[in-house]
Design a protein around this nucleic acid. Structure first.
Lengths: 222, 222
DNA sequence: ATAGAAGTGGAGGCTATGTCTCCACTTGTT
DNA sequence: AACAAGTGGAGACATAGCCTCCACTTCTAT
């Protein structure tokens, strides 16, 4: 977190720097809980500073988002690269997908930055572009190995993440862990072959939970 | 379409009835293309009438939605029931899922009504509740048959539809048919076992298409 | 201790978007 | 022709987010 960024000329005054950190922390929390649509007013409230202070430090929301998520995106690319070195290619791919879903499930802001192309600035965009080649290699490796079906493409991966991300978002308030169940279902669809269903790692929702999930679910508006 | 509803006392004047139909048609089109979030002003514009006319005929948006989708929901329940009579239980389930996804892909409004619990009134809500038992039987039948894995539950079905619906929504402007690809992937995850991947019914997106998809994708706001 | 540079808060201006009302006017019906 | 029924669409109202402005406070260098 907390890049020391700023096109620094003079260092910030001590209290100003402290406020800057508070804003970053508050923004991260707020984005994680409510997504990138939270207002800067809300972030200011959480940080215990005035809106003016937020706007002085970050000319607009994208600057703030960029400063916040550059690091996190970088870390994630590193993780993907690490998965590339797993002994079993299939396990590497699974670990990557699991990690991605887990991050998206507990940090809506990160999910939106990683999965949507619209937000953030150059730094974040650059990190995003670093992902594709790594994912391609994860896919190719698992296919060469015979464990991943040959007819999926690297471009399927982000779309699967969108699907699973939506799911974890709309169930998060009802039963936070169910996404694992659907990830496993999808993984069983991605295997080249299997004799028996892989045990699902989470109970199905009850009908009541399902209903609560659906009625809370807000569609995107465009 | 076009229920003749209204707690009719006097029948509407001829021109008024004609306008009412126009509104219903325009609303259906608008909802299908842009989702339930279209404004009544927009619907009026499309119908070629003034907003006032819309509001006189339908006190608010939910009344309009209810009048529009009651029929469509009923039809869909009927289709589900028909799938229950397919010779092969697995095929019945697949046909149901395919139909559902197809309807959702070409009618955003219907998708939102069917999948979200928030919209419409009693009539639509009632139709929605009719679905669950039918889906339960579709699932049970395919499981009894051994084709559908034993560890999925009826409640998984609507959530899979949410996942696939999201996908078809975010790809619709880039490559309208890809949702079939992901449905098949999911289906291959739902089978009890298989030796080889079922051929996917649609090409993967190109990297460029994927990028376009992601950058157009708007997240839900809550 | 103090001057003045640096920083602050939050009311409020501005824009955008959507819902719904109102009533002078038009149209259909008998 | 008479009048009930219906109409359009400007605009009142509400909400909500972005961002500015400036009188005031706080820091820090001397």
């Amino acid at each position: 977190m907390a890049t020391t960024t700023t096109t620094s000329d003079r260092p910030l005054r001590r209290d100003a720097e402290r406020n800057r950190q508070r804003i970053l922390v508050a923004a991260h929390e707020a984005f994680a809980e409510d997504g990138l649509s939270v207002t800067l007013d809300e972030i200011a409230r959480r940080a215990g500073v005035g809106v003016g202070t937020v706007y002085r430090r970050f000319p607009d929301k994208d600057q703030l988002i960029d400063a916040l998520f550059e690091h996190q995106m970088g870390e994630f690319v590193a993780l993907a690269e690490e998965c590339l070195t797993d002994a079993a290619p299939w396990d590497g791919l699974v670990r990557f997908l699991e990690q991605a879903c887990a991050s998206h499930a507990c940090d809506r802001g990160f999910k939106e930055v990683a999965l949507s192309g619209t937000h953030g600035l150059e730094r974040v965009a650059r990190a995003r572009q670093l992902m594709f080649p790594v994912v391609s290699r994860l896919v190719a490796r698992a296919q060469a190995d015979g464990s991943l079906r040959a007819d999926v493409a690297a471009t399927d991966i982000p779309l699967l993440q969108v699907m699973l991300g939506t799911l974890s978002e709309c169930t998060r308030d009802v039963e936070a862990g169910v996404w694992r169940r659907y990830l496993m279902l999808v993984l069983d669809g991605l295997r080249t072959s299997r004799d028996t269903p892989t045990p699902l790692p989470h109970e199905a929702l009850t009908p009541e939970q399902t209903q609560r999930t659906m009625s809370a679910w807000k569609h995107s508006s465009r």
